[in-house]
Design a protein around this nucleic acid. Structure first.
Lengths: 344, 344
DNA sequence: GAAAATCAGTCAATCGATTGCTTAAGTCAT
DNA sequence: ATGACTTAAGCAATCGATTGACTGATTTTC
């Protein structure tokens, strides 16, 4: 057991101690050579340590290191539903950037407040993560209490918060504005906005931007249809819009799921898109394969997720963050659901 | 500093030592009362410990505990793309079940082999996770080496592996079989199967099932269109199927993205669905809002993800696992893309 | 009433790595 | 040659919790 460090594979992963023992140096020396600094060692000693570490395929034990350094190197992300493509994109952007920066991501998909509080406990109270990215909108009393009871660096993504904490968002206002301007450019004047209630701050900003665009273009007020940000929400809103016979010619679906649902509803009612009704949706990377393909205002959801990680990382490096709005502006992607009104 | 444990909030989270000091008992006693067993204590001592823990809002420090117990309580999941609804569903199922069982999930979204190897290193070599759920299909040499170099309990989900390790899959064969039988029931005889190459074991099983169903029903051989499991893949396959004028009346899209793409292609070519062409897709929870809504063979993707966690958990409890196929059988969900051929 | 058993807890090592403080030897200046 | 530095590394505490071995007191058993 004492001298048998030859060519046999280790059953147990190598530790600093193994290297130290093999080389008859102190584990602190090995540690300082391999990770920290703050020590001077003879080049040959240093080299032998590095070599032995490589030979034993040494990798630091994250848990042990983290215990000592009080940093877990892990980031948590709380989100309401992974099957919603908006959140999937955000998470994907975050996970990728986290990987690049050397963090690992703990993902918690939480439907309800209770779950979010319990996950919060596990991730934060047990100190598994250094920071939290919060993409859920439910800011229940319990949740706020949990944050207060156990403060941790956190950042809201795709939403701003009343409870304090910075945020990373895309320029929702600009997206809404661009949608309105686009309809105006195409000669539409009877518009509708399908959104969610103002409690969702994203919806509120999109509506505000849309409002500004409509107003600036000298168009009459638009119809404001409210429903959940889901396929069914969009479907139902569009159905009632059509059935009410307002004579709307252009609809801005302020969420991709809503856009998909709205298009389906138009088709079901036999309303031809885009000849009888134009639809512009938000964020349609997914929906190129609808029929017709949805014209969209595209925002950078993955970039937003990535940026959230950047901000957290910057925070750890001592910079203090502000609310950030992704610089990449929303852009119009012309596809098949937008045309001038009353023309074939 | 010695006696001031009154009503002030702790800046630093409470530790076992804090409780022990306040109550003048040993930290090992506190530990055994709060977590383990293996000790007998007076009821009042026990109670005072429990009370004090509650008062200080004590939560065990996961890292410290895990270091000692050599269990991280974390599970890793490797997947190719979170924005693919199939994987999103699997992850969601897994994350939820993990939460229920008290695990946390580390999600790694890895596009390429290089990334998967590097993530593997970080998650496994640094021992951040107790086990790995693998949903990526690339089983490159590097990746296999990484697994061999650093063995860890692992489980494949939605795929079987040549490299060893158990798996959890849905009954892909049954899904294919059911699709074929369904077409037969509706009186179709000129069928096509849109799938991926046989390198994807899921595609291979779906095709095999479809083959059996076709054969059993006494139908002629089907056309086998191969392309990637993506919207574009399905779109392109359907386009070439239509343009080749085989007179196909029923198409089984063996993946949801393929189904969406195929439907779009049919619409683009002016082929009416379902009157001129029937489409049955796999896994269409997402695609209820296509036009027309896709008729689908539904499998339990979330259940599969959850089941993967169950199996890993069972493994830790000493049961040894086999390859498991989800018991819930695929079911037919009739929507709008299936009709008898040559009629209305 | 002595031995055995039970109770109620304490002691100390340990998980693997990090880090401030020392120390021993060698080097340099004077 | 002696004090002052520098170099090269070791020592030991620490992060927070777990766990097997052990101890002293009390109770039970025969």
């Amino acid at each position: 057991m004492t001298d048998a460090a030859d060519a046999r594979l280790p059953a147990r992963p190598a530790t600093l101690k193994d290297i130290a023992r093999a080389l008859k140096v102190d584990v602190s020396t090995v540690s300082k050579v391999l990770s920290g600094g703050g020590i001077s060692v003879k080049p040959e000693t240093r080299q032998s340590i590095v070599d032995e570490a490589a030979r034993l395929n040494y990798r630091p034990h994250a848990l042990a290191r983290n215990l000592r350094t009080r940093r877990s190197g892990a980031l948590g992300i709380l989100l309401p539903n992974l099957m919603n493509p908006v959140y999937a994109a955000i998470v994907r952007g975050a996970v990728h950037r986290a990987d690049e920066l050397g963090y690992v991501m703990l993902v918690a998909d939480v439907d309800d407040e209770a779950a979010s509080t319990s996950v919060y406990r596990r991730l934060v109270s047990e100190r598994r993560v250094d920071a939290l990215i919060i993409a859920v909108s439910t800011q229940s009393a319990e949740f706020v209490d949990a944050i207060a009871a156990n403060p941790i660096p956190h950042l809201f993504v795709n939403r701003r918060s009343k409870i304090g904490g910075n945020s990373v968002t895309v320029d929702d206002f600009a997206a809404g504005y661009l949608a309105a301007k686009t309809f105006a450019d195409y000669g539409h004047s009877r518009l509708a906005f399908i959104g969610a209630s103002d409690e969702l701050d994203t919806a509120q900003r999109r509506r505000a931007g849309f409002y500004k665009g409509v107003k600036e273009s000298g168009l009459p007020p638009f119809i404001d249809a409210i429903g959940p940000y889901s396929r069914r929400g969009g479907y139902d809103s569009m159905l009632s819009l059509i059935d009410a016979k307002w004579g709307v010619t252009g609809v801005f679906a302020s969420n991709i799921l809503v856009g998909i649902g709205a298009l389906a509803a138009a088709t079901v009612r036999g309303v031809r898109v885009p000849s009888e009704m134009s639809i512009v949706t938000l964020d349609a990377e997914d929906a190129v394969y609808t029929s017709p393909p949805l014209t969209a205002i595209k925002t950078s959801l993955e970039e937003m997720g990535a940026r959230a990680i950047d901000e957290i990382d910057a925070l750890f490096r001592g910079q203090q963050s502000k609310d950030v709005v992704i610089e990449t502006p929303p852009t119009l992607v012309l596809r098949g659901t937008l045309a001038r009104p009353n023309q074939g």
